[in-house]
């Protein structure tokens, strides 16, 4: 009797999973963004970490000043022609796996800035996983985009740059 009850109690405290699932769960629960605010969208990006919206619930509140510690680049604002090489360098410095969220109309398509100075969509420069619409997007919208990214990670879908290099989506 004593032995079986111990075994039952032990089984109650154990969860079985695969290493893969476990890794994905850990990855999606600590997606750390790089500090990369380019324009007014950055204000909304900052407020998403505040206590009112509390991005910390999803483990993404730690904005890293170094791209080497970041998993996610939130392109928050219009990307000028002069900023594009800088953005690309920062993206290349991020360790893999890495994701990119294009936040707002300007980052996604150039927005109202249809002129010589602005890149017409940041996906010309880096591969984008999630596009968040809005001008600027509300913090809720950005949070929704981050949640969509978490879903993507949980499902085991590869980041966009792997999709592109490995040829065809899985």
């Amino acid at each position: 009797m004593g032995l079986s009850s111990t075994q039952q109690e032990a089984e109650r405290g154990i969860l079985l999973t695969t290493v893969d699932k476990m890794t994905r769960w850990a990855q999606k629960s600590s997606v750390w963004p790089a500090t990369f605010g380019l324009a007014c969208c950055a204000i909304e990006m900052m407020s998403v970490t505040s206590s009112r919206y509390d991005l910390a619930r999803f483990g993404s509140e730690a904005f890293r000043a170094s791209p080497r510690q970041a998993d996610l680049m939130i392109v928050a604002g219009r990307v000028s022609q002069k900023m594009a090489p800088v953005l690309r360098t920062i993206w290349e410095q991020m360790p893999e796996p890495k994701w990119v969220i294009s936040m707002g109309a300007c980052a996604s398509s150039g927005g109202v800035f249809d002129n010589y100075a602005i890149i017409q969509g940041v996906d010309h420069v880096v591969p984008v996983d999630v596009y968040v619409p809005g001008c600027p997007p509300t913090p809720e919208a950005l949070m929704f985009g981050i949640l969509k990214l978490r879903e993507k990670i949980q499902m085991g879908l590869p980041p966009k740059y792997l999709e592109l290099t490995q040829g065809g989506a899985s």
């Binding site: 249809d114 002129n115 010589y116 602005i118 890149i119 017409q120 010309h124």
Partner: peptide, 9 residues
């Protein structure tokens, strides 16, 4: 006489 629209790639 410079193009007003942004460059599209």
């Amino acid at each position: 006489d410079y193009p007003t629209a942004g460059p599209r790639v």
